[in-house]
Design a protein around this nucleic acid. Structure first.
Lengths: 212, 212
DNA sequence: GTCTATATGTAGATAGAC
DNA sequence: GTCTATCTACATATAGAC
């Protein structure tokens, strides 16, 4: 038995939560899949909620660490980083998760989506707190690559990218993700650069005028 | 009592599902909020699952109908529609849902997000089937606005936009949505146009080469 | 640390009176 | 169509032996 009971529970629970959702997945299923006893979850984590948070912390830490590592590398290489390189540092680690034979990361992306959908309470707070740090670093990096960008719009646009990334990674079949990620980087870069023109589209202006 | 019991149940259930998720919300909560009897859900819908599907069908029909109506209007106006106008026809009805004093639509966007996260089974199939029709119409319209676009990439890019829209609408505070929608239209238009250059970003190419 | 056994709560669904 | 009462099932959590 190379892996500890605690880790087997984490792995099994992550798989089941991603597949079925939090509430549908029972401690019985988890402990059975982990080949552990029903009481073990409470012994190691205290409650089902704490187990969920532990799963989350583990992967989110790893994902964000990988992103920041790449960003650091880019920023130490050059004074003004290329926009695409910054976006790639954000997108590619998520993709990296999705790669690999066991499809671990795609499961986690599915989990991320569930977390977005859940108005869970504490989980949301924890995620936001952990994300805020990373998002600010990336917002700063994009600002350096695009010095004329408006900070408020930039925030919104990063949210667009997170949305596109999360939904895409959770939905798409495994084998296309590498190409899709490259397409997303390009799409996002073009979108960000396009906003510098600061042109309100005719159709949108019409909408704004009609409803204000 | 102006509204029928059936409709009161639909309204109450939609609110609670969006707020708490499907599994956390009980039939007892729903019927209590709707001021109906517990047995009424089974009487009108047969089961909880069927109730969920009925809620979904109601709103999704309305949203997609509104989108297609706008698209029809654009296409009958001109031979080659403006890209931004097409995107606005897709984005703005979702926004329209989110507007209005009672915040009905934001709830529904939250619900949509849950549906994406749920690997529910039949619900997913039903959504996809309903969406396929609309997405093809919009893909065609974008193709006309951007005749040189690659169809496969276009599909992916529309998914990016859906992801950005869904996550943004579900998360953002009500009062900003009008501006954010306009920004999303512009961001998406620039992203789509940028793909025509068909340039693979240096960073992404590095990634591709390193991992292939 | 791991197990069995069980306490306690609450879910969805239905039978049958009105 | 609407109600009360209840069936049946399964959830989380814990007590306590080993």
């Amino acid at each position: 038995m190379a892996i500890s009971t605690r880790d087997r529970i984490l792995d099994a629970a992550e798989w089941l939560f991603a597949d079925q959702g939090f509430h549908l997945t029972t401690l019985r299923q988890i402990t059975q899949a982990a080949e552990a006893n029903l009481a073990a979850v409470n012994y190691y984590f205290g409650s089902k909620q704490e187990l969920i948070r532990a799963i989350f912390r583990r992967r989110l830490d790893a994902l964000n660490a990988a992103r920041l590592e790449r960003l650091d590398a880019i920023e130490s290489d050059t004074d003004r980083p290329e926009l695409e390189a910054v976006l790639d540092a954000f997108v590619e680690p998520a993709l990296e998760f999705t790669r690999g034979g066991d499809a671990e990361g795609q499961r986690f992306m599915q989990l991320l989506l569930r977390a977005f959908a859940d108005r869970d309470t504490a989980l949301h707070e924890a995620m936001r707190a952990e994300y805020a740090h990373v998002m600010r670093r990336f917002a700063d990096a994009v600002s350096e690559a695009l010095p004329n960008a408006d900070p408020t719009r930039l925030r919104h646009q990063l949210d667009f990218i997170v949305g596109a990334l999360t939904l895409t990674m959770a939905e798409s079949a495994l084998k296309d993700t590498r190409i899709i990620a490259a397409e997303l980087v390009q799409f996002a870069a073009a979108g960000l650069r396009g906003s510098l023109e600061n042109r309100i589209p005719d159709s949108a202006r019409r909408t704004l005028e009609a409803t204000s």
